[in-house]
Amino acid sequence: MKQATDPLSRVFSALADPTRRGILDRLSQGESTVGELTTPFGMSQPAISQHLRVLEDAGLITRTRQAQYRICAARPEGLSEADDWVSRHREIWTGRLDRLEETITGLTTD
């Protein structure tokens, strides 16, 4: 499968994995080192680093170096484009479902 290159696809692709969503949940509580992120997921540090790379490429986290530690932090603004897309589509489908309900109600009251 071809790797997504547009920002919105990268965000949705990153969020498709439950481990990456778990990492984001953890980082929503505050910064963490890679080592601290490894423990709750029962994965090796290289495996967590791969997940972190995907999240960073999608613009959902930042990684910085402090001495020998790599510090990870969530970037909530990275979700804004996905949130906008979901909101637009929610409005469209809510409107369509409301019109369908009106049509069905009109048919059953005749």
Score class of each variant (00 low, 15 high):
residue 35 G to S: 14
residue 36 E to Q: 14
residue 36 E to T: 08
residue 37 L to T: 06
residue 37 L to S: 08
residue 37 L to D: 08
residue 37 L to M: 09
residue 38 T to E: 15
residue 38 T to L: 02
residue 38 T to H: 02
residue 39 T to D: 12
residue 40 P to S: 04
residue 40 P to I: 01
residue 40 P to T: 02
residue 40 P to C: 04
residue 40 P to Y: 01
residue 41 F to Y: 13
residue 41 F to N: 08
residue 41 F to H: 14
residue 42 G to D: 09
residue 42 G to R: 06
residue 42 G to T: 01
residue 43 M to R: 15
residue 43 M to H: 13
residue 43 M to P: 04
residue 43 M to C: 08
residue 43 M to Y: 11
residue 43 M to E: 15
residue 44 S to M: 04
residue 44 S to E: 13
residue 45 Q to Y: 01
residue 45 Q to G: 07
residue 45 Q to N: 09
residue 46 P to A: 07
residue 46 P to R: 05
residue 46 P to H: 07
residue 46 P to I: 04
residue 46 P to L: 05
residue 47 A to Y: 02
residue 47 A to Q: 12
residue 47 A to K: 09
residue 48 I to D: 08
residue 48 I to R: 03
residue 48 I to L: 11
residue 49 S to M: 10
residue 49 S to A: 12
residue 49 S to N: 13
residue 49 S to F: 00
residue 50 Q to Y: 08
residue 50 Q to F: 06
residue 50 Q to P: 00
residue 50 Q to A: 14
residue 50 Q to S: 13
residue 51 H to M: 07
residue 51 H to P: 01
residue 51 H to R: 07
residue 52 L to F: 02
residue 53 R to K: 15
residue 53 R to Y: 09
residue 53 R to V: 10
residue 53 R to P: 00
residue 54 V to S: 10
residue 55 L to F: 05
residue 55 L to T: 02
residue 55 L to S: 05
residue 56 E to H: 10
residue 56 E to N: 13
residue 56 E to K: 13
residue 57 D to R: 11
residue 57 D to G: 09
residue 57 D to N: 15
residue 58 A to G: 03
residue 58 A to E: 03
residue 58 A to Q: 02
residue 58 A to L: 07
residue 58 A to H: 01
residue 58 A to D: 06
residue 58 A to P: 00
residue 59 G to C: 06
residue 59 G to Q: 04
residue 60 L to F: 03
residue 60 L to Y: 02
residue 61 I to F: 03
residue 61 I to Q: 02
residue 61 I to K: 01
residue 61 I to T: 10
residue 62 T to H: 09
residue 63 R to V: 11
residue 63 R to N: 03
residue 63 R to E: 09
residue 63 R to D: 06
residue 63 R to G: 04
residue 63 R to C: 08
residue 64 T to H: 07
residue 64 T to N: 10
residue 64 T to E: 14
residue 65 R to T: 12
residue 65 R to W: 04
residue 65 R to L: 10
residue 66 Q to N: 09
residue 66 Q to F: 10
residue 66 Q to I: 14
residue 66 Q to M: 10
residue 67 A to P: 01
residue 67 A to M: 10
residue 67 A to D: 14
residue 67 A to Q: 12
residue 67 A to T: 11
residue 68 Q to R: 14
residue 68 Q to T: 13
residue 69 Y to R: 15
residue 69 Y to D: 15
residue 70 R to K: 11
residue 70 R to Y: 07
residue 70 R to I: 11
residue 70 R to M: 11
residue 71 I to T: 06
residue 71 I to R: 01
residue 71 I to N: 03
residue 71 I to E: 07
residue 71 I to C: 06
residue 72 C to K: 00
residue 72 C to N: 08
residue 72 C to T: 04
residue 72 C to E: 05
residue 72 C to S: 13
residue 73 A to T: 13
residue 73 A to L: 07
residue 73 A to W: 01
residue 73 A to R: 15
residue 74 A to C: 09
residue 75 R to M: 13
residue 75 R to T: 14
residue 75 R to G: 02
residue 76 P to Q: 02
residue 76 P to S: 04
residue 77 E to S: 15
residue 77 E to M: 09
residue 78 G to C: 07
residue 78 G to T: 05
residue 79 L to V: 02
residue 79 L to R: 01
residue 79 L to E: 00
residue 79 L to W: 01
residue 79 L to I: 03
residue 80 S to V: 08
residue 80 S to D: 14
residue 80 S to K: 11
residue 81 E to S: 12
residue 81 E to H: 05
residue 81 E to K: 08
residue 81 E to R: 13
residue 81 E to Y: 01
residue 81 E to C: 03
residue 82 A to G: 04
residue 82 A to L: 07
residue 82 A to N: 04
residue 82 A to I: 07
residue 83 D to L: 14
residue 83 D to H: 11
